[in-house]
């Protein structure tokens, strides 16, 4: 390793060479490789965290490039999966650490596998359904994590130490309706960067042996407003997610085909009951006669039939664009891809 690589971080007294050594032996799991996942991923890779796993279910689109810093025009043009594109870039940034890109949905069925050897989890998701799964999985495995959300010029951050500080479920007893999302009211990169900076800072603090902040922090970078509220009194001793009597409601496994409406995108994700590796070439051959256009980029099969664009992943998951009705999406999935 080049000796000078981490010198400026080691000169920072709270970290020092001792803290740097600790970072080299830690594993951080980043759920979501969008804007927050990218920004956190880049900082943690440059900081020298020994292993980073980055999980994402989506692929790169042109509208991502304004703020999702790990991706390039080439990634958007070829519709590379975010997890693989992100892991390639992170590995190029730091070849001395281990990077794992996982093209998968972080779901109730799979979440706990990622907890087994995680030292810390970063929330890089764009929806509360997945955040509540992170919340339950981290609570059950006692893995600390940091929630981050941003929209327009606003951002919010909360570090969560399961059992010791209030969890997401303690603060909010229902999943908020997502009327306003990045796809409907937009977001600017400075809001992303500040949110991610606070997330990474809490992560580095924890990994080098310090206590995390108990403040729920929010800001508006356009209006230059900052508010921090100490939420430690809000820990709920009967919380279904983080108390001694927890039932982890969001880790209940679902039966049958799963669907998720991707907010504001006129897109439904359909996930088969059992994920198994799909033969993309075989599916391509079978669907070619019905498709108006078709592209196989080695990771995904993308084709259009009438007004719907289908993006099929190797695990059988499919994003169907041009549909917002779940039942309609299931029908389309069963008709073309399988049960």
């Amino acid at each position: 390793m080049i000796k000078q690589r981490y010198s400026r971080q080691e000169l920072f007294a709270p970290i020092g060479t001792e803290g740097q050594q600790k970072l080299a032996n830690k594993h951080v799991v980043i759920v979501g490789a969008g804007a927050l996942g990218s920004a956190n991923g880049e900082m943690l890779a440059r900081a020298g965290v020994g292993k980073i796993t980055i999980i994402d279910r989506d692929y790169v689109e042109w509208s991502n490039l304004s703020r999702q810093q790990l991706f390039t025009e080439e990634d958007a043009a070829h519709a590379h999966t975010k997890a693989k594109a992100a892991s390639r870039r992170l590995q190029a940034i730091n070849t001395s650490i281990t990077i794992e890109g996982v093209v998968e949905e972080f779901a109730a069925e799979t979440a706990e596998v990622f907890m087994e050897d995680a030292d810390f989890v970063i929330d890089g998701t764009d929806n509360f359904n997945t955040r509540f799964i992170i919340n339950d999985a981290c609570a059950k495995w006692r893995v600390p994590w940091v929630y981050g959300g941003c929209l327009t010029s606003y951002g919010i951050v909360l570090a969560i130490m399961p059992g010791k500080s209030p969890c997401l479920q303690c603060l909010i007893d229902q999943i908020p309706q997502q009327g306003r999302t990045c796809d409907t009211v937009g977001v600017i990169a400075p809001a992303v960067q500040i949110t991610a900076a606070y997330q990474t800072a809490e992560c580095l603090k924890y990994l080098t042996g310090y206590e995390m902040s108990q403040e729920l922090l929010n800001f508006d970078v356009w209006e230059r407003k900052h508010v921090a509220v100490n939420v430690s009194p809000l820990i709920n001793p009967y919380c279904p997610s983080c108390s001694a009597k927890a039932t982890y409601p969001f880790l209940m496994k679902q039966q049958g085909i799963q669907t998720a409406v991707l907010c504001g995108r006129d897109t439904v994700q359909v996930r088969p009951a059992q994920t198994n590796t799909l033969s993309i070439p075989a599916l391509a051959k079978q669907l070619k006669p019905f498709s108006d256009s078709m592209k196989d980029n080695g990771e995904l099969l993308i084709f259009t039939i009438k007004k719907n664009r289908f993006v099929v992943f190797q695990d059988g998951r499919t994003l169907i664009h041009g549909v917002s009705d779940v039942e309609q999406a299931k029908k389309l999935y069963q008709r073309y891809i399988g049960a």
Partner: peptide, 9 residues
């Protein structure tokens, strides 16, 4: 002081 959640990221 009112702090509200947002989902984006």
């Amino acid at each position: 002081e009112i702090v509200h959640f947002v989902g984006g990221g």
